[in-house]
Design a protein around this nucleic acid. Structure first.
Lengths: 334, 334
DNA sequence: ACTACCCGCGAAACCGCTTTCACGAACCTC
DNA sequence: GAGGTTCGTGAAAGCGGTTTCGCGGGTAGT
């Protein structure tokens, strides 16, 4: 054996005095090997510092040990710390289970792009999707039997496992909180309404309103897109159409910040004149002045849950969607 | 051939009427195949929708087409949008070159951890490191011939290719700017001084000070750690020890924000009494009030440069470190 | 015309692990 | 004690490409 070269089954087998088949059995946890021989194999592995060649193993077994994390968007998504954080949660859990994370940041609108091809080609054992803009690709992959997990709620009621934050409940709590603080006229700035999360948050807001015995007046519902700019723009509109506005629920912290900026430059003090609640509990919620009252979601847990669901699937377990709870974090803005 | 199954060289070869060896040559760009036969192979590939099995290819050739992106830290790193953004730049460029990004978020202090093993086991063709806390692992990998790129300047003067932002120049520009605005007493809150970036930014600050004919007084240099809290803490200290402080250069935007928070609650208005400059041009620099004057670094470009350097190495090209320029973005805080 | 080379190509070995299959020994059963 | 099981094991056939090696034919040199 050349010094630098890694040992193979051949040398393990010879050292342990067994066949390669037995080595394979031991290393894959096959119980049927005699304990004594198993021990000898273990010793040989130990002594030679053997590590399985994953590529060869993948070729023979059809399992690559790779899980794709697909971000259905362009670069801008990763600028949001949210997805980076989810990804790190995914990556850590997968790693602990001997799997690796293959990252693909790319719009996957079509069923025929490079990403799609890669996923269909059997080079990953499963795929976790973020920010899904359409269910077409996942439905196709599902049919081909690729284990999938979606982070966020899918659009159609497919039976693909997903993990999500309780968007409805969080938004409901946020709106209720504003009302309990005395707000009579609460506007909402939604996220990109093409996302299910934005829809669910809107629904939570509507539900809270409904329970208050009123309905949100026309124009209290503004369709934003999660960006700082859109928060500014819609707060401006709200101020103009509803001078007596006294509360805003923004579907994320960034838009809440945008709204506060506009409110204050219009002479409306937060929270004295207008109370504002955000969503996410991003870093800026803590660093802003006034500090933002918001709905916290556990982002790392979201990633971990996604990975956990994936691993359960790979092990052939039955699985249910996971909905993570939110928490109202009261700071200064409401 | 079973309907769902993917074609292999065997069927391509038969369809094109050539040997498998020739198919391999054509698909790997070997020029020595007769054009006519090459065309026949291409046609067969086209007709059958053939895609190479990367795993089999990897086993036979020893090249996996996978590049590891290693983040030498725990979860907190990814919460910083900075690294997410770099990663997306890396991923995109690699993808365009037929390579895939394997993400590993894990402290790699030791030479013996799981990550280390993975990198040494030949299952990736190269590795790109972020946030390197020690050069030990990379030097070891370098010796083993694994192509490497470091994002950020390495500690020792190894000859490992790296990409970095011009930290020194940026800090120098920031400090000069403060002085040109009339600041006489400028403090610095450094980043985690265990990172080369923090050291270089400190050096830039010192250089600007030196050129002004003075030296920064004792206590003007505070050792922070890039966190919001540390910005607050050190601004507090600076205010106490130097009541006449009129400028702060913070080594990142987050600490600058922390400093501003403290300054304003101490009754010091920004920029009237104290001017503040940050570094990064993160999202919060734009959304904060007052909007933060800062040093912009092109984060996506950093990732792209790292990937480009990796690809050049894989192609056997000679390569030089890449230092990306910074830009002073003047907003309200200075 | 004869040896020397070069070129394009296919046969076959090989990459390192997984898995099927069949064999021999030990254990039952009546 | 003969026939039937069960169990542990190794030989060998893959997995799907890559690469070496050598062959046959064409070109060149003398």
């Amino acid at each position: 054996m050349v010094p630098g070269a890694r040992p193979t089954y051949a040398v393990i087998a010879k050292t342990a005095g067994v066949s390669e088949a037995t080595v394979s059995r031991v290393l894959n946890g096959d119980e049927s090997v005699h304990p004594e021989r198993a021990r000898r194999v273990q010793e040989a592995v130990e002594k030679l510092g053997y590590k399985k060649n994953r590529v060869a193993s993948a070729l023979a077994s059809g399992r690559t040990g790779l899980i794709a994390v697909v971000i259905d968007d362009d670069l801008s998504v990763f600028a949001d710390p949210f997805w980076g954080t989810v990804t790190s949660g995914v990556s850590r859990v997968l790693q602990e289970n001997g799997l690796h994370t293959v990252l693909m940041v790319s719009p996957v609108g079509s069923l025929e792009g490079g990403v799609s091809h890669y996923l269909k080609s059997g080079e990953v054992d499963g795929a976790i999707f973020f920010v899904l803009h359409s269910d077409a690709l996942v439905n196709d992959l599902k049919k081909r039997g690729l284990p999938l997990v979606i982070t966020g709620t899918p659009h159609s009621s497919t039976d693909i496992p997903f993990v999500d934050t309780d968007n409805f409940g969080g938004a409901y709590t946020a709106t209720k909180h504003l009302m309990s603080q005395g707000c009579k006229k609460v506007g909402i700035i939604t996220g990109d309404i093409g996302t299910t999360a934005a829809k669910q948050r809107l629904d939570g807001y509507l539900q809270a309103y409904r329970e208050s015995g009123h309905l949100p007046g026309k124009g209290l519902i503004c369709e934003g897109d999660y960006s700082f700019e859109s928060g500014k723009k819609h707060a401006q509109t709200l101020l103009e159409t509803h001078p007596d506005l006294d509360g805003i629920f923004a579907s994320n912290d960034l838009m809440a910040m945008g709204a506060i900026t506009v409110l204050e430059s219009a002479g409306k003090s937060v929270p004295t004149h207008v109370r504002v609640v955000g969503f996410d509990d991003a870093l800026i919620a803590q660093t802003s002045r006034p500090a933002l009252t918001t709905i916290r979601q556990d982002v790392v847990a979201l990633g971990e849950a996604a990975a956990t669901l994936m691993i359960a699937q790979l092990n052939g377990h039955e699985i249910e969607p996971i909905i993570l709870p939110t928490e109202l974090i009261i700071r200064e803005s409401a």
